[in-house]
Design a protein around this nucleic acid. Structure first.
Lengths: 230, 230
DNA sequence: TAGGGCATGTGGTCCAACCACATCAAGTAG
DNA sequence: CTACTTGATGTGGTTGGACCACATGCCCTA
């Protein structure tokens, strides 16, 4: 076993045993190195991995914001992993879109009508109704709306996966807008569909909401010229 | 931007541009450090992250197996990320099981009856029919069977996510068997359900296969005493 | 010709030093 | 006594160099 993996296992053990929880701080790199009888280099490699996994955040300086603190951002980890593998072209974008439809349909059908996330989603729709909104601003709100729907289903894993899927193809989705014949027309349609979806959820018609979401996403990519199996 | 991220972006760029593909080899660490005008330490930190993400594999020595070569193992990345976040107790096991049901039901309903993966799955079932099989061996085959079903749906993202979900809770699932009243009875039931699922897929009845899979998974965890929302 | 041994190049590990940064306490000027 | 400055302290960030274990392949020798 390599040295940095030893450190990794030690930290993972501390997390599992509850001796290290979200918000807690890891010992300083130099201290940890001495405790585990390894070099600071190896400690740092382990921390880098944890950082990439969204488990810790490293901050320089002094005070409460400094040091290496435990966080929990699964979306970051899954997102960069997916993005990298999309880059290697071993994860087709069409599969990502398909998975997004799958997860988001499920989330729509399981979203709780009275959840605070859904209230937030309604607020986002109002913002998006503003006239003359820039394309990128609209898309940013669109992402937040869809993520809010996913969160409303109350499954942290599905939320994280949804977020990571979006993150892995944001750049791609943004470039797609260039393929659209007329953005204003599309935006108007998207707005209307968003309201329909929200209405279906609020009326406790999960099945309809799921179908609307699937059509909403697939319709957009079809219009933008992406092919993917049903 | 930190130094190792510069290296990370450079490599990701090479991947995106196709200058670096799966099977290809990264320049040696010392060479890369000189090329990018950074220290070898920073290069190594970047490579560590890529390794944790399942994008490269580092091998010492000389020859074709040595050096840092590009691979593509999204499952490893997602799996360890999920496992770590389960350790921080920010991803409830119940959510993972629920997501597994969701993904696996979809895969069952979209599995292609004539796919080679399904043939492999049938072979696994025969192996599992052997008498007096050890619990861990049975569970190992069970994992492979379920993954084969997921692969048969032909969506790489769903396959990777399925694999990572299983990986993140293998230890957990293994401990669960201790809760079962009688393993032999349960194993017999699992075998029968597996055959039912496979039959449904082979008869092109995706809807039934999906329902059977959901019942199969939820039934197991219910019997083992895990609570999770529907 | 067949064998052993060394040159070469790889990642793995460690160390010592320095930097930038953020905070906090002590000291000083008002 | 207050307010500001200034330095000490501790954090992660980065670097260069050194050495190790390992795997290969060439070259020299028997």
């Amino acid at each position: 076993m390599r040295t940095h993996q030893l450190v990794l296992h030690w930290i993972e053990g501390q997390l599992s045993e509850g001796k290290l929880a979200v918000g807690g701080r890891l010992p300083a790199e130099r201290t940890l190195a001495e405790q585990l009888q390894v070099s600071r280099t190896s400690v740092r490699e382990a921390i880098r991995i944890l950082e990439a996994m969204g488990v810790v955040r490293a901050g320089v300086g002094s005070g409460p914001e400094a040091g290496t603190v435990v966080i929990s951002d699964p979306t970051a980890a899954l997102g960069s992993a997916l993005r990298l593998h999309v880059a290697t072209q071993h994860l087709p974008v069409s599969d990502i879109v398909q998975t997004r439809v799958l997860l988001e349909s499920w989330a729509a059908s399981h979203a709780r009508p009275d959840s605070p996330e859904l209230t937030g989603a309604a607020g986002l729709l109002e913002e998006m109704d503003a006239d003359g909104m820039a394309v990128d601003d609209f898309l940013a709100l669109d992402v937040r709306f869809h993520l809010a729907l996913a969160d409303a289903a109350g499954n942290a894993v599905v939320s994280a996966m949804m977020g990571s899927l979006r993150e892995s193809i944001t750049g791609y989705a943004s470039r797609l807008t260039a393929n659209l014949p007329d953005w204003d027309t599309t935006a108007a349609r998207l707005r209307a569909e968003h309201h329909e979806i929200l209405d279906a959820i609020q009326n406790d018609d999960g099945e309809r909401a799921a179908k609307l979401v699937a059509a909403h996403i697939e319709g957009y990519y079809r219009e933008a010229g992406v092919r993917h199996s049903p």
